[in-house]
């Protein structure tokens, strides 16, 4: 086939994007994985000691901070699922009771427009042991309630979870609401005519119809949990002690505070691995939806 300039324009237009993908994403990922096998400290060194190539990873799993970070990630993940449940309940109620839809949606979604740092700062203030909510509750005699979660290692993660749910529930509500709206209105009428009860309608018809939406929400939430960083910095900065370390925090800390490039790279590589584990179902889900659509 003869050469045509017109065929080249789109390819030329795509070169910046391709270059970015190759350098900033693929190349950088490969570089980080490579470096995680070296013994680089503050600067990158490229020699790999093949007798001990997994040293950073071995160190990592012996590191108490990393173990805490992984455990906290799980806790945060499980706790944050409340945001999906809460989001679905809100969406279902808003969708059912059309009155005030615009108002409630606006209120539930506004935290998402705000920086996680702001969210963290706000909640950090509310959790203030002397002047925060606890003080207010104690002053009206409710002294049995403690609301100084952030200052105790056992409860600090729950404080972060609460703030995350507050920030994220609106997002899942919005996703669920658009899922609910895409359900054919005739189903509601049919269920009414058949006299199906409210609970059975949701449990047996609506929720199964929204399985794609639920899965999408779950995967997005998990990916967000792996990346969690800002909220931790703003609320506890990892403390008390290492009680609220998460993988993202651990990695940044290993690079900026410990200046250990290889160690940080190993932690980042494991974060990528976890992301890949979560991401796999998303890829499969996409393929599945594509098949469901075409068949």
């Amino acid at each position: 086939m003869a050469f045509r300039w017109s065929r080249m324009s789109p390819q030329l237009a795509l070169t910046p994007a391709v270059a970015i993908t190759v350098v900033a994403f693929i190349g950088s990922i490969l570089w980080t994985i490579y470096v995680s096998f070296t013994s680089s400290k503050a600067f990158a060194t490229y020699g790999i000691d093949f007798t001990d190539w997994a040293r950073q990873y071995e160190r990592l799993f012996k590191d108490k901070g990393w173990t805490i970070a992984l455990k906290n990630m799980l806790v945060l993940g499980i706790g944050s699922f409340l945001a999906i449940v809460f989001g679905f309940i809100l969406a279902a109620l808003i969708d059912r009771e059309k009155r005030g839809e615009g108002f409630f949606r606006t209120v539930f979604l506004y935290p998402l427009a705000v920086s996680l740092i702001v969210t963290g700062v706000a909640w950090r203030w509310m959790f203030n042991p002397s002047f925060g909510l606890q003080g207010a509750l104690h002053s009206i005699g409710l002294t049995f309630i403690s609301f100084d979660w952030l200052s105790k290692p056992e409860t600090a993660m729950y404080g972060i979870i609460l703030a995350s749910v507050w920030q994220g529930a609106g997002f899942y509500m919005a996703l669920m609401l658009s899922g609910l709206k895409s359900i054919n209105t005739e189903i509601w009428s049919a269920a009414r005519l058949d006299g199906v009860s409210f609970w059975r309608l949701y449990a047996e018809i609506i929720i199964p119809m929204m399985k794609f939406t639920f899965l999408t929400c779950a995967i997005l939430l998990s990916l967000g949990v792996v990346k969690a960083y800002d909220i931790v910095v703003a609320m506890t900065n990892g403390g008390p002690g290492q009680a609220t370390w998460v993988p993202g925090y651990f990695t940044i800390n290993a690079y900026w505070v410990k200046s250990n490039l290889a160690y940080a790279s190993a932690a980042a590589a494991l974060m990528l691995g976890i992301t890949a584990l979560i991401f796999l179902p998303l890829v499969l889900l996409t393929a599945w939806r594509e098949r469901a659509r075409t068949s």
Binding site: G27, S28, T32, V226, T251, A264, A268, L272, T275
Partner: peptide, 14 residues
């Protein structure tokens, strides 16, 4: 969907 940490260091160096 890649976590930022995995590309952070090379991007800083770059």
């Amino acid at each position: 969907f890649v976590p930022f940490q995995i590309i952070m260091i090379p991007l800083i160096i770059l």
